Amino acid sequence: MQKNVIQHGDARNLLAGVQEASVALSFWSPPYFVGKEYERDATYESWQELLKSVIAGHGRALKPGGFMVINIADILCFEDPNIPRFQSMNIARQRSPITRDMVLDAKAAHPNFNRNQLAELLGCSEQTIDRRLNGNNIRGGKYATQTKVKLVGGNLEKYAEEVGLYLYDKRVWVKDAAWANSKWVSNSLKAVSETEDIYVFWKPGETVIDRSKIPQKEWKEWANRQVWYIDSVRKNDDHEAKFPLELASRVIRLYSSEGDLVLDPFMGSGTTAVAALNWGRDFLGFEKERKYVELAERNIKSFLAEPRLAL
Score class of each variant (00 low, 15 high):
203 K>P: 08
130 D>G: 06
200 V>N: 06
176 D>A: 01
141 G>T: 02
159 Y>H: 11
174 V>M: 09
219 W>P: 08
195 T>Y: 14
157 E>M: 12
205 G>W: 03
136 N>D: 06
124 C>H: 01
186 S>W: 05
146 Q>K: 14
191 A>Y: 14
206 E>L: 10
184 W>A: 15
130 D>Q: 13
220 K>Y: 13
216 Q>P: 04
160 A>I: 06
215 P>R: 00
189 L>I: 11
135 G>C: 08
161 E>S: 05
156 L>R: 03
133 L>N: 03
192 V>W: 00
191 A>M: 14
145 T>H: 08
121 L>D: 02
146 Q>M: 07
144 A>Q: 11
161 E>G: 06
164 G>M: 04
164 G>D: 01
226 Q>F: 11
226 Q>V: 12
205 G>R: 00
204 P>I: 04
146 Q>D: 12
138 I>P: 00
179 W>V: 15
171 R>Q: 09
227 V>P: 09
191 A>I: 12
216 Q>R: 14
206 E>D: 13
179 W>E: 11
179 W>G: 12
184 W>P: 09
187 N>F: 10
175 K>W: 02
170 K>P: 05
172 V>L: 07
196 E>A: 08
128 T>I: 04
147 T>W: 05
190 K>G: 07
127 Q>G: 04
181 N>C: 12
178 A>E: 05
192 V>I: 15
185 V>E: 03
151 L>K: 14
125 S>M: 00
134 N>F: 08
156 L>Y: 11
180 A>C: 07
169 D>N: 15
228 W>S: 09
227 V>K: 07
175 K>N: 05
156 L>I: 09
143 Y>H: 14
143 Y>I: 08
187 N>M: 11
154 G>N: 04
165 L>G: 13
208 V>S: 07
146 Q>G: 07
147 T>R: 10
187 N>W: 10
202 W>K: 05
149 V>C: 07
